[in-house]
Design a binder for these strands. Structure first.
Lengths: 142, 142
DNA sequence: ATAGTTGTAACCGTATTAGTTACAACTATG
DNA sequence: CATAGTTGTAACTAATACGGTTACAACTAT
């Protein structure tokens, strides 16, 4: 199992939108060229990022702008925007036998532990800010 | 995106195999009754756990035994046995544009960060031992 | 009015998952 | 030795998700 490529694509899109802001119009076509995919894939991700309040998109004319400072956007924000649908990343089997000493307690045994693993992952993602990534890209001009 | 239910099912299976060891013959049919699934699903998971050296299975007669002490089996061992196929849990988009200042550096920017998140999750899973879970199940007899 | 763009629906091919049926190989037991 | 019960595995199914693609209405600067 793997997470979808939407997390890396969305991060790429945000970094490109930031990097090229004011320089070129960051249309879905342009961004798709950088990400190496289809403009519709980009627009779908833009929709998720917009719904999450991370960007604004100029309808009609085109162009993506960050809605927050890059230091206020973490990989967890992006992850939550494009990936998260369910409460937990660990899918529990649906019908453990409650009459069994093990089956009747399996949730009680595992739920908190798996929650802790999830929280740990989320914490780690939240520590990675877009600004830290953007700062590593040398700006040709300026 | 979610991990498959194989992790929780496999953990359930191992806990049941441990709990009922010496008491009843833990056949795939019996275990399937506790997990709430099909015996073949159980046998498929048993195959993965066996390949990982976590259990032995009595062919012909039936019955699952742990190959290690429960304190030596972690959720990471189980995860690696039943879930892990790829190197990373984060799927990177395949064709970032190398000619773009962002696309050309996106791996350099993200690979280490995502690796760190993965390692953190694995560390957390490795800290959860089967014995800690098994100890919380009251043994009716003894 | 026009050209370029966004937002979204619809569809495709591929892959994964849990579940199921089927069956050969194996093993203890009578 | 024959049998019953079991494992291991292949083959198939239905459901779901994913990246990709085509198409098109709605929007906007010029």
């Amino acid at each position: 199992m793997q997470f979808s490529a939407r997390l890396t694509m969305a991060t790429h899109i945000l970094l490109a939108a930031d990097y090229f802001s004011g320089e070129v119009r960051t249309t879905s076509e342009f961004l798709a060229g950088s990400v190496g995919t289809n403009p519709v894939i980009v627009r779908r991700i833009l929709g998720q990022l917009r719904n999450a309040g991370l960007i604004t998109v100029e309808q009609g004319i085109g162009g993506v702008s960050l809605a927050k400072d890059p230091s206020e956007i973490s990989l967890l924000d992006i992850y939550n925007a494009v990936e998260k649908k369910e409460e937990t990343i660990f899918h529990f089997h649906e019908n453990p036998n409650g009459a069994c000493p093990v089956g009747g307690r399996i949730h009680e045994l595992l739920d908190d532990e798996l929650e802790r693993v999830t929280k740990c992952m989320e914490k780690e993602l939240s520590d990675i800010k877009l600004s830290a990534l953007a700062d590593k890209i040398p700006k040709g001009k300026e």
